[in-house]
Design a protein around this nucleic acid. Structure first.
Lengths: 198, 198, 198, 198
DNA sequence: GATGAATGAGATTTCATTCAT
DNA sequence: AATGAATGAAATCTCATTCAT
């Protein structure tokens, strides 16, 4: 029984993981349901047992993983730290996810973050920006960040800078060794903080 | 008369412009060749007179417009101005393209940035980053920008911040009125310059 | 029940048989994939489940049936009979195929004989001539056939004469009733044997 | 004026010759009107100035050249010679045309001789067989050929043997050097004559 | 749960033919 | 006569989804 119920989860997880890899490699539209099934080592019909459609697979990837990211963002936001530190924390979360699961980041960055439909469907997308924005506003309120900068816009600038670094790694255009990632992290954080600093 | 003044080459241009509109509206994959032809007011077969495939249309849009962007970047780089001013110039070129041709920016941001193959095919892509990088290095050499920042990485951060603002406009998530764009411009520039400043 | 007894492999066979009929009726190029599917009573997409392309269907028809023909030729060649009898056997196999499956012969004669590529792809084609050639050489060795005739060339003459009779039937230019076929058989054999006889 | 009218003929001839080459290389259906025009060095639109359609080009090739062949067959038939010699003459005409224009023979053999539609359209096709048949009947009447052979069927056998040799040359499967052709000629003739001889 | 044969809407692409110049 | 841009019918092929087993 337990065996069987674990089996369920297993196959579902296998499909999801395979989808992340395949979407990352070929892009959502070029990826075929058959490719995902093959990568997962299951018959393609099984995909429809766990998911309503190919689209639903992407949506699931997004919801399950973005939700986790947001949860960690929220934890940082709620922490009792100065705004600067919070921004550092958020940048670290974003960049380090890459090391854990590059394919996942690729999919999130390439397919989800730029898709109008998905963004419209899921409220969580804007939440990431909202958290960054609130942290910046907090910094402005406590006098650590300049007030003549629109916090909303700044959140997009900051997020964009970080995402582009991820993209550079995704595309293999920026070095992504252990040290490189660490250096990128501190550089990005410093530039951002100084840019916003009073 | 009108027909004659339109001339031959122009059908090609019509198709390309239509493709930009249609790709921007529906996305590359959902856009049908027939939609492009209809929007351009020609038979769909004509598209294959000028282009090898639907994919070739996207590639052409990319190459021709990115080439133009790079040319303008180069002009800024070559100008006799301090590095700071050059960075401002580049940011202005990038952001103002939105008001000039939102559909084009939408396609470039949404479709092209997503396609590894496309980027790999064209050397010009890297050139944009290279120019920004050189400008930053120039600023570091003249003592205007901090030297403890990796110029290559910084170029990605700067470009990413700017592109994300464009993305915000594309997705309708950031206000893009005349004033908003002007404000975004100065905010982005200030944040970037302060971030890099000594 | 009936469905079950038909089984899986049979759809492939149905498609192949339908293709033979449709190719025979309209010719390969005028035949549409949809026609084949309709004749086979399946959706056209299923054709691509079993075959890579329309062309692959023709190739398969060719390979599978030519292979069978060759097998029967080989059996005759291996038999313990005088060369004359073997040549008679081969002629009978070739000509009687018409009554067994006129559509197949039509396709083989009309489409396959026309396609250089197809013939080049399959070694078996040359094998038919090679067998006839060996039988003639055997006859020459045993003194039954004249030796001043090039066996290779003679094999082409013999095969050509027989194929042309088939073509006459295919084109409806030669009578192909039961008796006609029998008469053609003996005439062809006699002419060929006398032509080669010492 | 003469220049111009020669020009007319020239272009028409160029197109026809190009068509023969292209049809021979790729087969009628795979050959594109554009290929013919390119090979002829003219714009493809011009083809429609001289011919009603692609099909008409093939028909013209057939009519103009088959007519010539038939004329020569008739001359041989009308000559004051024994039937044997006439058959020899016909075989020579058929086989030697190859040396003069292999591409033409390829088209005639591959596209025309096996096409029901063309054969139906042009009465001349059957005429070749009819002449051979009459010559054989003549030989039977004069006692040179065996009478227990159906003359009609025999004409197909003879024609088929010769055509297959041509096919062998077309496909590059039989040697077609000067000497080879001469030898093939005598072999074919001998085999055929002996086959029919009393 | 699992499989993969079967479906069929839908999209791209080809290319013979037309026709304004 | 000559050109080649323009047309659009028609055909192949793809692939997400269904469903009997």
């Amino acid at each position: 029984m337990t065996d069987r119920s674990i089996g369920h989860r297993d196959k579902r997880k296998q499909i999801l993981d395979a989808a992340i890899r395949v979407f990352a490699d070929h892009g959502y539209h070029r990826a075929r349901v058959g490719d995902i099934a093959e990568d997962a080592g299951v018959a393609h019909g099984l995909l429809y047992h766990y998911f309503a459609s190919k689209d639903d697979v992407l949506r699931t990837i997004f919801v399950e993983n973005w939700g986790e990211l947001i949860a960690r963002f929220r934890a940082v936001e709620a922490a009792d730290e100065p705004a600067q530190e919070k921004l550092v924390g958020i940048a670290k979360i974003l960049l380090r996810t890459w090391r854990n699961n590059p394919a996942l980041v690729t999919v999130m960055v390439r397919e989800v973050a730029r898709s109008q439909e998905l963004q419209a469907q899921v409220d969580d997308v804007g939440e990431a920006f909202a958290i960054i924005q609130r942290v910046i506003e907090e910094g402005q309120a406590t006098g650590m960040f300049r007030r003549d900068v629109d916090a909303r816009l700044a959140s997009w600038l900051v997020y964009g800078g970080l995402e582009e670094v991820l993209t550079g790694w995704v595309l293999g255009q920026l070095p992504d060794g252990e040290e490189d990632v660490a250096r990128a992290e501190s550089t990005a954080i410093e530039v951002a903080l100084r840019g916003l600093a009073v």
